[in-house]
Each structure stands twice: as C-alpha cells, then as structure tokens.
C-alpha cells in the first residue's frame, strides 16, 4: 500500500553520471534550464535534445525509466498543448468553428511547448535518477554555504531536509496503521462525496500530527544525547570532491550554453 511509494527516484546503477559530483550536476541542470527557456527557436530544442541524449547515454538509465518519468505529466502536457492550440491567434487560420479557431502559430507554439516540457522533465529526472537523496542534500548544503555569510541557516536547512527524507517512510507506515485503526472502528475512507472524504481525513491527520510531534521531541533528545550542537565544529566523513570528469562535464555544458547563445543571435 502506502509503503510501496518509493521516495525520490534514485536508480542505483554504475555510470559516469552517477559518479559525478552532485554539485556540478545541479549547476549543469540549471544551465540546461536556462538554455531551454532563453530561446524560442526549434534549433534550441534540437540542441536540448542532443544534450539530454548525451546525458542519457552516460547515465546507464534504461529508456523505460525515462518514459516512466514522463508518464505522470502527460495530462498536463495535453492540456498545455490544447490551450496553446486554441488560444494563440497568430498566422494563417487553418480551421474555424464558431469562436474556436486553430492557427499555424498555435500549432507551432503548442508543439514547441510540449517538447520543451518533455526535455525539462527528462533532464531533471536524470539528475534525481543518478543522485541519491543524501548526496543531493549534501550538494545543496555545499552550494548554499556562501549564504552563511548573511546568517542564512544553511546547515540547519540541510539537516531538516535529510531528517524529512529519513522520516517520510516512517510516517507513511504510521498513516497506514492509523487508517487501519480508524477503519476498524467503522470509518469509511474510500467512498462517499468529496466533502465526506475530506472530512474522513481529519481523524487520520490529527493522530498523525500528534505522533509526529512526539517523534520530533524524542528525536531531538536523542540527537542531543549524541552531542549534536548545530553545524559548528562539525566534521564530515564524506567530502564532496570534484574530479577531472566533473570539470570536463562542466566545460561541455558551457559549450552547449555558448551554442545556444550563438543560435539565439543568428535567429534574430
């Protein structure tokens, strides 16, 4: 049931992309998003496709998994395409029925949008497929560390993220138990009108919150017992260290960025 929901989507296989420094991967994916959104020519999309294909080849992630990441957003894709198709009034009118009309511009824009979203999703899921949640938090902590200068609690935020990751499965299990307990007392959770169903959630949410607070208190005591005192004076066993492949990857990404800038200039 609820327990089967896997957290994050880390796909543990061996590959170059898996071994790359997560900090670089995050920066590169940001560059990729900039490339995708900074231009509006189909050449940019072609460039993005090349980028994604290259990353996929290096990642050892099967195509099936890539498809799995796109599947949930298909309805959103369809909706975006439809809206663009109907409401963009640009170029030759190809089809008209009462107030609805489909134009050449509408077709190109909706196609463009669809491909852009698909590329975006594939790119970012390649990041989460190849990076474990712990590494991801470590990388975010490391990337945000300059913010410490303006007193932003970087370490605390990373700690919160990793504790949240740790407790999601535990709390899901708990939810399952509470649901069974309430069902055993005759609560109906799965049918009835929408309002009834929302109301039925209250007796699940309240015990869940109470227990979550209790857990939080116990965890805080246990952490104090293990001498936790924030980020100060803390050493780390695992150190993120950039290697040759990370710098090469970064250079390749910069080349893509340069290419996209050139395309944008040429198209104008």
């Amino acid at each position: 049931m609820l327990k089967d929901i896997t957290l994050g989507q880390y796909f543990p296989v061996e590959s170059v992309l898996h071994r790359m420094d997560p900090r670089f991967k995050i920066i590169e994916i940001m560059l990729f998003i900039v490339i995708l959104f900074a231009g509006d020519s189909f050449w940019i999309l072609a460039l993005g496709t090349v980028f994604v294909l290259l990353a996929q080849c290096l990642s050892n992630i099967p195509m099936k998994m890539i498809w799995k990441s796109i599947k949930p957003i298909l309805p959103i894709l369809a909706l975006t395409a439809l809206l663009n198709l109907l409401f963009i009034d640009d170029g030759d009118v190809l089809f008209q029925w009462k107030i609805l009309k489909i134009t050449q511009g509408g077709i190109t824009t909706s196609l463009f949008m669809m491909i852009r979203i698909v590329l975006l999703i594939i790119g970012s899921s390649l990041l989460t497929y190849t990076t474990s949640p712990i590494l991801l938090t470590d990388a975010i902590e490391s990337l945000m560390s300059p913010l410490k200068k303006i007193k932003f609690p970087v370490h605390e935020m990373a700690m919160m993220m990793s504790i949240a990751l740790r407790f999601i499965p535990t709390l899901l299990e708990e939810t399952d138990k509470i649901m069974s307990a309430q069902k055993a007392r005759g609560a109906t959770l799965d049918n009835g009108k929408l309002i009834d169903r929302v109301k039925a959630l209250i007796p699940i949410m309240i015990p869940l919150f109470v227990s979550a607070f209790r857990r939080a208190e116990e965890l805080a005591t246990a952490m104090e017992c293990r001498c936790y005192r924030g980020g100060e004076g803390r050493t780390r066993l695992r150190r993120l260290k950039a290697q040759a492949r990370d710098y090469i990857g970064f250079v390749v990404c910069m080349l893509f960025l340069a290419a996209s800038v050139t395309i944008n200039i040429l198209v104008k």
Partner: peptide
C-alpha cells in the same frame, strides 16, 4: 523506540 533515534537514511 529505535525509529525515533535514527537520524539518517
């Protein structure tokens, strides 16, 4: 409760 003492994944 072991669940409430373990910090990491």
């Amino acid at each position: 409760n072991p669940d409430n003492q373990i910090v990491a994944t």
